[in-house]
């Protein structure tokens, strides 16, 4: 199992254990992480699972695909470290990953 920590805008941290092969969004939903709405259920069609990848992890999570970049246009306060977490697959390499939940989702 892979450990992923979500940090809320108020600083509250929640570490969830995620099974490899799931998406980070699915792991977040299973653990009821607040602020990860994932309205479309992981189809990369809504931008409501927007997260900021903590510095130091961005190389491992990689950059968004073109489709994900297009969908990020629908997110609020998009930064260089923005990702849609339905598009990040849980792998052993991501053990310890730290993600920040934005203050506002659309």
């Amino acid at each position: 199992m892979v450990k992923i920590t979500f940090i809320q805008p108020d600083g509250t941290a929640q570490t969830v254990t995620a099974e490899e092969g799931l998406t980070v969004m699915e792991a977040a939903k299973m653990a009821d992480v607040p602020g990860i709405d994932a309205e479309c259920g992981g189809a990369c069609a809504c931008a409501t699972c927007h997260v900021y990848v903590d510095a130091g992890w961005r190389e491992k999570t990689g950059a968004p695909s073109d489709m994900e970049e297009d969908m990020l246009d629908f997110a609020f306060d998009v930064r260089e470290e923005s990702r849609l977490c339905c598009q990040i697959k849980v792998t052993a390499a991501l053990d310890g990953l730290v993600l920040r939940v934005p203050a506002k989702q659309f």
Partner: peptide, 11 residues
């Protein structure tokens, strides 16, 4: 005077 935001649809 006027702003037109186009950020897709929600339900």
């Amino acid at each position: 005077d006027a702003m037109l935001p186009f950020f897709g649809l929600t339900m």
